[in-house]
């Protein structure tokens, strides 16, 4: 018997910090090339859910599958470390605060992981770094240090660094939240470009406009549950749940 398993398959995800239950039985399926936005108030569990996908925040119970392989399978410690490092190479992640390596140049930031983990030569690594920086429009910054870049540039380098591992899936954890408003657009442009290149993406965001224009599906989370999900026009124009309406109304007021 064969049955189709979604590309990303989260089943009955539960996460507790002591007494506090931050994820309550969440299931989420994402198909290849889909772009899913997760929105919701802070503390709703959206980042925790995202970070469970590459096991940065391990679930208390439930399963995460990627492309037919269980991410959080039970293994003895050393075997599990090997397994998870293998999985993580296939999942790119972009953080709110960039987390570039400040002691390395832009080039070294991009080439470190491919050199260490894929054993590519210096020449191949340089070509890779140039390609990825060309891609995000920062080839002229290749020998800069992160401290010499603007926030928007840092985030574009962080995206290039993640892409250099040729991931199957990209996770964005509030990638533009720490940026000055005038720098948000350049990062959004790069993310739109990835969308056009058919990258599978899961995006935690506060930018409703971006989510509406780029994503195939939107999840609204609150209090550790998915309150409502659907096509962006439905969630943003005709939400059915009171909590979704309240959140969107407050958010719009905040923006204005």
């Amino acid at each position: 018997m064969t049955h189709h398993r979604p590309f990303v398959d989260i089943r009955h995800a539960q996460k507790c910090y002591g007494e506090l239950e931050v994820l309550k039985d969440i299931s989420l399926q994402v198909e290849q090339k889909q772009i899913v936005a997760i929105i919701g108030p802070s503390g709703s569990g959206k980042s925790t859910l995202l970070r469970a996908i590459n096991d940065l925040d391990p679930l208390t119970s439930g399963e995460v599958w990627l492309d037919g392989v269980q991410v959080n399978k039970l293994l003895p410690h050393t075997q599990y470390e090997k397994h998870i490092n293998q999985i993580r190479q296939q999942i790119g992640m972009v953080f709110q605060h960039f987390n570039l390596f400040p002691h390395l140049t832009v080039r070294e930031n991009i080439t470190l992981a491919p050199k260490l983990l894929k054993g590519i030569s210096d020449d191949e690594a340089n070509v890779l770094a140039e390609q990825q920086l060309e891609h995000v429009g920062l080839i002229d910054r290749i020998d800069y240090h992160p401290s010499q870049l603007s926030g928007g540039q840092k985030q574009r380098v962080a995206i290039a660094r993640a892409l250099a591992m040729k991931p199957k899936l990209m996770l964005f954890d509030e990638a533009t939240s720490a940026l000055d408003p005038e720098l948000v657009e350049e990062v959004n442009q790069v993310m739109k470009m990835l969308a056009e290149e058919a990258m599978t993406m899961i995006i935690v965001t506060h930018e409703m406009g971006f989510a509406e224009s780029v994503c195939d599906r939107v999840l609204f989370m609150d209090g550790g549950v998915v309150v409502e999900e659907g096509a962006p026009e439905v969630i943003f124009r005709n939400p059915t749940q009171e909590r979704t309406k309240n959140f969107l109304r407050k958010h719009l007021e905040g923006v204005k």
């Binding site: 590459n54 940065l56 470390e81 490092n85 293998q86 993580r88 190479q89 999942i91 790119g92 992640m93 953080f95 605060h97 987390n99 570039l100 390596f101 400040p102 002691h103 470190l112 992981a113 260490l116 983990l117 962080a158 660094r161 993640a162 591992m165």
Partner: peptide
């Protein structure tokens, strides 16, 4: 050293030892 450094390194697929050696310790020593 900011916790995000270890997280970013682990996210790329580095082991804890590799992350310490290439990312955390050089910054700490610096």
């Amino acid at each position: 050293v900011d916790k995000g450094q270890m997280e970013a390194a682990r996210t790329l697929g580095l082991s804890r030892g590799q992350a310490l050696r290439h990312i955390v310790i050089p910054q700490a020593v610096r």
